[in-house]
Design a protein around this nucleic acid. Structure first.
Lengths: 194, 194
DNA sequence: CATGTACTCCTGTTTTTCAGTGATTTTTAC
DNA sequence: GTAAAAATCACTGAAAAACAGGAGTACATG
């Protein structure tokens, strides 16, 4: 449905040639082994593999192809991951025809393009930073808490003292501005951290 | 983008007339006050309002219009809510042209249509019933727990004894097959209950 | 009317979490 | 190479949650 939409938005554009489409990561790689376009519009949600991972793979094999991330989700974490995996831009699925054209024309020059809304949330999350920045250990502890482990169990799992786990736990509560496990886990879940 | 896709998939179909499209709940209602189609393909993610709520509203005002839910998410809770709000079916955005045509032709006869994949998850969740059935009180207690309230605070809020809250809490842990608050909240969050 | 379900409440005990304070060692980054 | 950030650990006491087991009331449904 989305592929059809993009095709119909682009097919009459001069200067743009539609080379093909793929509906999975594997078929995309198979296609690329035959011919390589200048730009790929890559969905994040693929049946066999994450578009985020595929992006990295494609960029490794074919560094000259520019990739535009494509997703329904206007989520800072996704945008970040796509860009850090070599994507040149990010377009939302509710983008207008003009936006897509702008995006393609921008990235083909080697520049970065972000959808208007995407750029907004990107900037906002940069400024307000609503997602607390967690350290490696804190993330580990958080996800083990979410699994239902107690401090002692977590300590055993990570080969550290229960007291240390307790400290990480306190820091997590502070960073999330919560006062107990329940609200901590809820917030973390809402932020898609766990 | 998606609208373009559907339009291009349907525009050459005989027996189907494309009456228009809207990109928000409010513009949809404005459109419907002018003319009413037989079928609406309604996205769940709208900028101003949830498609789930809009579905209810449209069905109340125009009971004769059949609504097909449309979403990227193959989530049982969404499907359920759409159907209980009067939708006649649910189609995923990766549906084929044939699926959309089938869906439209099915619902227009007053029957229900579910996308293949949607029907799968629907049935699966029906059989295994991974979502525990909660009572009214349990839902209340659960959401207050998720807010970070303690048993005493919840008791005060609901005008019941802390002991009762404790009992509900025990039942919640049992129903979710969890052993503490952390994993309870995580599961509930994943099931979109809170 | 018996059975089941939901809601209510109780007494204890044990385990876990939360709060506060303080300190050492490793890593990381500039 | 040094300053900042992260990770480590300890102690105390209070608060909260988890576990166990029992028990009464209301209400609907078969």
């Amino acid at each position: 449905m989305v592929i059809e939409g993009i095709r119909s938005l682009l097919q009459h554009e001069k200067g743009i040639e539609w080379m093909g489409h793929a509906t999975s990561a594997s078929s995309c790689l198979a296609f690329l082994s035959q011919e390589q376009p200048d730009v790929i519009l890559m969905d994040i949600n693929l049946p066999d593999q994450s578009g985020i991972d595929l992006c990295k793979e494609v960029k490794q094999r074919y560094p000259s192809i520019f990739i535009l991330g494509l997703s329904t989700f206007n989520q800072q974490s996704f945008i970040e991951k796509m860009l850090s995996n070599g994507a040149s831009g990010y377009v939302l699925k509710n983008a207008t025809q003009q936006e897509i054209l702008d995006a393609i024309n921008t990235v083909i020059k080697g520049k970065q393009y972000l959808s208007f809304d995407a750029a907004l949330t990107f900037r906002k999350s940069d400024e307000t930073s609503d997602n607390p920045i967690l350290t490696r250990r804190e993330k580990e502890v958080l996800s083990l808490i979410a699994e239902g482990l107690t401090n002692n169990e977590i300590a055993a799992q990570l080969f550290i003292s229960p007291a240390t786990v307790d400290t990480h736990r306190k820091n997590l509560l502070a960073k999330f501005a919560t006062k107990n496990t329940a609200s901590l886990i809820r917030k973390a879940a809402q932020m898609q951290i766990i």
